[in-house]
């Protein structure tokens, strides 16, 4: 089976809608290039933590583990990355620390779900609460940041109209994320690891009977996936904002799950879904800024959350999650 063909067949409507959107964007560009470029670049920036969160969620769920702790993984990783940056001023080291924090929390989730067989939703809640508590406890007011990642324009490509501003004038973590989307897609559908991962999430007993270690796969994948959530956290403090605030993830970890579901547990489709969310946020900010609409800012603030509910209600029951997701596997 050609996965690309399957992709097209299953998502005709969405892909056509995306194409229409692209055309509309080019039409708008003809009228006002600066604003369109600004909105698009902002869409991409907004989409980065969402798609990383969604990748984290989908690797977990493809292996049979629900991860509602992404919010907490992002938050604690953002915090630690920020602290390391404040102490050392080394952005690379800070990024790596954030990624490691994500991995540790991922491992903890795997421990709870696989070894302790805690209900996975409760397990994720534990992670969220821990992250909120720990960041609150160790947070000190008045820490001063030591700078953040700055955009690197890719020579040549950066000057392409529209696309250049959107894709080729970004800071490094954004580039890294864009690469990771395709790497995860490749790994999931074209490698033995991907085949095994999907098998473990669909029918763990069957995977076990052909000699695949279900527990090991789940531990490994949820830990690896945690790195992506950690990267999302590092992105927030080291690239997007530059500093840390309490609860700064603002539900992005949960929105990422909606992105994942909307993207049918597929990396590239999830990126599309994340861009849609990012676009909605960027557009309303722009409209607000231009005073094109006069709505209280609180209602604008609700939009991503409303959009999440609408998306979930729209696709709920019509998508097909991995069959064994949420069920602890008990070896006979």
């Amino acid at each position: 089976m050609n996965p690309w063909r399957t992709l097209w067949q299953n998502n005709r409507g969405k892909l056509i809608a995306a194409a229409v959107l692209v055309v509309a964007v080019f039409a708008a560009y003809a009228r006002n290039p600066q604003i369109v470029e600004a909105v698009l670049a902002s869409s991409l920036r907004q989409s980065i933590p969402l798609v990383l969160g969604a990748l984290c969620g989908l690797i977990g769920e493809r292996s049979g583990i629900i991860n509602i702790g992404i919010e907490g993984q992002m938050l604690l990783a953002a915090f630690v990355a920020f602290l390391v940056n404040v102490r050392t001023g080394n952005l690379l080291l800070a990024t790596v620390s954030g990624v490691l924090v994500g991995a540790v929390l991922g491992f903890f989730l795997a421990f709870m779900s696989v070894s302790l067989r805690i209900d996975q939703i409760i397990g994720g809640t534990v992670i969220n609460m821990l992250a909120f508590g720990l960041t609150g406890y160790f947070y000190q007011v008045g820490l001063v940041t030591k700078g953040k990642f700055t955009p690197i324009a890719i020579p040549g490509l950066a000057d392409i109209p529209v696309l250049g501003a959107m894709f080729f004038r970004n800071p490094p973590l954004t580039y890294l994320t864009l690469v990771l989307i395709f790497v995860v897609q490749f790994l999931l559908y074209y490698t033995p690891w991907g085949l095994r991962t999907r098998a473990v999430g669909e029918h763990p007993r069957a995977a076990d009977t052909v000699g695949i270690d279900v527990y090991k796969m789940r531990y490994m994948n949820v830990t690896l996936a945690g790195m992506l959530a950690g990267l999302a956290g590092a992105y927030l403090t080291l690239e997007a904002v530059g500093s840390f605030e309490r609860g700064m993830t603002n539900g992005r970890g949960f929105v990422a799950l909606a992105v994942m579901i909307f993207g049918r547990w597929n990396p590239i489709l999830s990126w599309g879904a994340a861009l849609l969310f990012g676009f909605a946020t960027a557009l309303q900010t722009q409209l607000q800024f231009m005073r094109a609409v006069r709505i209280p800012h609180q209602f604008i603030g609700m939009l991503p959350y409303l959009l999440t509910i609408i998306v979930l209600a729209g696709v709920g029951g019509r998508t097909r999650p991995p069959a064994a997701v949420g069920q602890p596997y008990v070896k006979e």
Partner: peptide
């Protein structure tokens, strides 16, 4: 012990 959404060939080589 087959993965319902996999093809025959994928099921054969799994593991």
């Amino acid at each position: 012990m087959l993965i319902p959404v996999f093809t025959v060939a994928e099921n054969l080589v799994l593991g």
